[in-house]
Amino acid sequence: MELKNAMLELIRRASTDLSPDVEAALVQAYDREDEGTPAKSVFGTILENVKLAREASTPVCQDTGSVIMYIDFPVGHSEKVYKEAAEAAAMEATKLQYLRPNAVDPITGKNSGNNVGVNAPYLHFHQWDKDEVRVRLMLKGGGSENVGAQYKLPDTALKAGRDLKGVKKVVIDAVNKAQGQGCAPGIIGVGIGGDRVTSYALSKEQFFRKLGEPSANSDLAALEKELYEDLNKLNIGPMGFGGKTTCLGVNVAAQHRHPATFYVAISYTCWVYRRKQMIIKGSEVTYD
């Protein structure tokens, strides 16, 4: 099954190697920290680990995350075909130790053992006008998922009102509360507006953007820059050991809200920032 094999390769690449923009940001972070500090030593270990994982084709991190796929496909294609291929690829990837079995039944406590279960892998489908298929994969770690947060503005304790200044405050609060627990340095996805569900979804989708690529909206681009600078002043540092690098990037997006609500969702991903995509056009598959 060709589609399954292409998805398996996508999973292997995501689990065992980081994208060039992420590795470059980690190298910059290493260079920025002072000699002889725990932060420098942590980044040294991180970079060595990334190299070892790539060479051995083994997972960068043992928490190989939840398997999340965004699939854009041409008119007339069947979602069922993609779902079956994704499940088969997840099973195979688990057998080959590219993935740890990470799907647990919350009622019985039983691990399915193969990463397949209810909403596992989690698939988002979108039909588009192009004659090619795009599969975007995210392997989202659980420790960093736990430090995500959703705020409802206004927030009295933080004196955060319903504007971008208020948004900035709650993002600082969330990252400060996370400390090193989400495997700092993190990448921060922020979703403004929408409802309870869509604000988190929007925040997480920001992880598909490249690091350092600003928002097309100039107000949000300015907010991203300010937040990136402020968050790195917190001195939480890698692993929460203290240091100059608390986050590697901040990506913000906004969507219309109901007049009564103003949600801000913050998704946090660890430095093992795993997302890759592939384009299938005819019989050709390209990975990025």
Binding site: T45, E48, T58, V60, Q62, G180, C183, M239
Partner: peptide, 26 residues
């Protein structure tokens, strides 16, 4: 160091035994 999965695995030289594997999962 969180995330250093491959590097630390290389320092784990032997698995002696395992308990509760079936019940709890890997």
């Amino acid at each position: 160091v969180g995330g250093a999965g491959t590097l630390i695995a290389k320092r784990c030289t032997k698995v002696e035994t395992v308990f509760k594997l079936e019940e709890f999962g890997t």
